[in-house]
């Protein structure tokens, strides 16, 4: 294709997105659009399945049958969401196996928050309340993103995720109504998960490399800093309701802006964790690689059996 023609196609393409038209898998798309979407959708999918691990830790120790089934169903949903997202990504011409390969070799990233350890039961509450809370803020706008399969996957994800945050908040609520020990446990979890949750919404706008292009393609509707502010504004009153203190001495309502002011985020820590030096990066990756490697013989067996069955069917037909 001549350069002129590509330029023309690109203009038409951008115009379609501007008119709120969806892009579908077989449509022509700029290579950069394809690559950016593979990166973002797979990163999202990886976050879902790595995100199963910190909570999966507590399925066997959940304190009641009701909590056990709720947590199990929630972690299972995350597997489902990973699956929807990998499928969306596959429509861009890359296989799930290739995407796993990228994850396992450290080439692909996932949300760095899942590299923090889950130390007590209250962490199940804090993750549901804060991490899922931040995730929802990120995800709801994506139901309208320009790439059709991604938008459709996100609609399903958002619909299913509506119980996740409630599940977490309910755990926190029960703890905050409970014994001193339980309240302390809840406060401790908030202390440990608050800052990583703020970081989860991404680097500050000044540092974020992808924002402008992502806005154009509707991979993002608001900047990281706007999303972070929205998260803080909606979460602070919830913490008040729980009788818990947000671990930020500089947090304060600002009459003029109509938002909460907050303290400085430790971005060094963020980048450390992103680069693989968080508390659990190695364990998380090992768990994923082990599951995949130990499952190889199972997957191979299923393929071999399917082939034999097909052969027998064909023989019978002759």
């Amino acid at each position: 294709m001549g350069e002129e023609k590509i330029k023309n196609l690109e203009e038409q393409f951008e115009a379609r997105i501007l008119r709120d038209e969806k892009i579908e898998p077989k449509d022509w798309m700029p290579e950069k659009y394809r690559k950016t979407h593979i990166r973002q959708i797979s990163q999202h999918a990886h976050s879902e399945i790595v995100g199963m691990l910190p909570e999966g830790n507590w399925i066997s120790r959940a304190p009641s049958l009701r909590r056990k089934v709720a947590l199990l169903a929630k972690v299972q949903d995350e597997a489902g969401h990973g699956l929807y997202l990998y499928s969306a990504c596959e429509t861009l011409g890359i296989s799930r196996e290739e995407l796993y390969e990228q994850l396992h070799t450290g080439k692909a990233k996932y949300s760095s928050i899942f590299n923090y350890p889950t130390l007590t039961w209250a962490d199940m509450g804090a993750i549901g309340w804060l991490v899922d809370g931040a995730a929802i803020i990120n995800q709801v706008p994506l139901c309208n993103t320009s790439y059709g399969p991604y938008a459709r996957a996100m609609i399903r994800v958002c619909k299913e995720e509506s119980f996740h945050q409630r599940q977490g908040f309910e755990i926190m609520l029960k703890l905050s109504e409970g014994s001193e020990e339980q309240k302390t446990m809840a406060q401790d979890a908030l202390n440990r998960w608050w800052w990583p949750s703020l970081m989860m919404l991404g680097p500050t706008d000044a540092e974020s490399v992808h924002t402008e292009q992502s806005m154009k393609w509707k991979l993002k509707r608001k900047t990281n800093d706007e999303l972070r502010q929205q998260f803080i504004d909606q979460t602070v009153p919830q913490a008040d309701l729980l009788g818990l203190t947000i671990p930020d001495p500089e947090l304060k309502w600002n009459e003029t802006t109509g938002h909460y002011d907050f303290g400085v985020i430790d971005w060094d820590e963020f980048w450390q964790v992103v680069k693989g030096h968080g508390p659990c990066n190695k364990e998380r990756m090992k768990a994923r690689v082990d599951a995949w490697d130990n499952g190889a013989w199972v997957r191979d067996a299923a393929v071999a059996y399917a082939e034999k069955k097909q052969e027998r069917k064909e023989k019978k037909a002759v």
Binding site: G56, I59, L72, G80, L83, A287, A291, G295, V298, R299
Partner: peptide
């Protein structure tokens, strides 16, 4: 329940969790 997140494939993982 102990298996959740460690299955040989996402689909199989989800199926075993359903049984649980």
């Amino acid at each position: 329940g102990e298996l959740c997140g460690h299955g040989p494939n996402l689909e199989t993982d989800i199926a075993c969790t359903n049984i649980s």
